[in-house]
């Protein structure tokens, strides 16, 4: 039986609002991951300054953020390094949602007559970033059973980056989906038409500022539906909302 490396380490499960000092705890479990470090080193060697950031969760996963112009080179480099299995391409919109991100979302505050909140800043995830939109893709090496997540920043004024469909044929459909859901275009893509939506559909549904209609006509439904976990008394842990 295997366990997560993080198992038993994180103990502030429901109390993210309370500041806990976990620095000392984290120091005790500094692991290294030689295999993934080596992959990262080789990628950095091949791509040079195009590698903008990286993050390794030891024993688990590797994130590499590359320059937008080197997006295709990154795929080719990884493919020649044995990462031949294409997993997916997608994107993330890091804009904190004006709609329905939480139970005290802006529009519910308006309904209940409370003061509107100041919008939260955009915070990118692992491997950092500078832009609202990031394209994310994953390749996998079947021989070593290791994957790489690639990320690339896509600036708002030019939502485009080179296509992967020439390197990995499977990227074709994924890029079509990303284009219609986020509005990010892929230069050189042979057939960038809608995958799911009608051709005359307006807007990009997976952007955070695209309102989810069902959410707009009903206030936050989540909190009343959270069921108690078996064997846990109501007063125990968790916050009483």
């Amino acid at each position: 039986m295997r366990t997560w490396l993080s198992a038993g380490r994180v103990n502030q499960l429901s109390s993210t609002d309370t500041a806990t000092d976990s620095a000392a705890e984290n120091e005790a479990v500094v692991e290294t991951d030689a295999a993934r470090e080596a992959v990262l080193a080789e990628l950095t060697e091949r791509l040079g300054a195009a590698v903008l950031g990286s993050y390794i969760r030891p024993g688990d996963d590797l994130w590499v953020r590359v320059e937008r112009s080197a997006w295709r080179d990154a795929a080719e480099a990884a493919k020649s390094m044995g990462f031949t299995f294409f997993d997916y391409v997608s994107a993330i919109d890091w804009l904190p949602s004006p709609f329905g991100r939480d139970m005290d979302a802006q529009e519910d505050l308006v309904v209940s007559g409370a003061e509107p909140k100041a919008p939260a800043p955009i915070v990118q995830g692992y491997a950092g970033g500078d832009t609202r939109f990031q394209v994310i893709a994953r390749l996998y090496n079947i021989a070593t059973a290791k994957g790489i997540h690639f990320k690339a920043d896509v600036p708002d004024d030019d939502l485009s980056l080179p296509t992967w469909s020439g390197v990995f044929a499977g990227a074709n459909w994924h890029e079509r989906e990303t284009r219609e859901m986020f509005g990010i275009t892929f230069d050189g893509h042979p057939n960038l038409i809608n995958m799911y939506l009608p051709t005359d559909f307006q807007g990009f549904p997976l952007r955070k500022d695209f309102p989810l209609l069902a959410r707009r006509v009903r206030p936050w439904p989540g909190i009343v539906d959270v069921e108690p976990m078996p064997g846990v008394a109501d007063s125990e842990e968790g916050e009483a909302e």
């Binding site: 499960l13 429901s14 993210t16 995830g125 692992y126 959270v226 064997g231 846990v232």
Partner: peptide
């Protein structure tokens, strides 16, 4: 037991994970 001790209201800490 079939259930670990988890909070009643589940908030998942900040981070990213891919599991397949």
């Amino acid at each position: 037991p079939v259930m670990a001790k988890v909070p009643r209201i589940i908030k998942v800490p900040e981070g990213e994970a891919y599991v397949a």
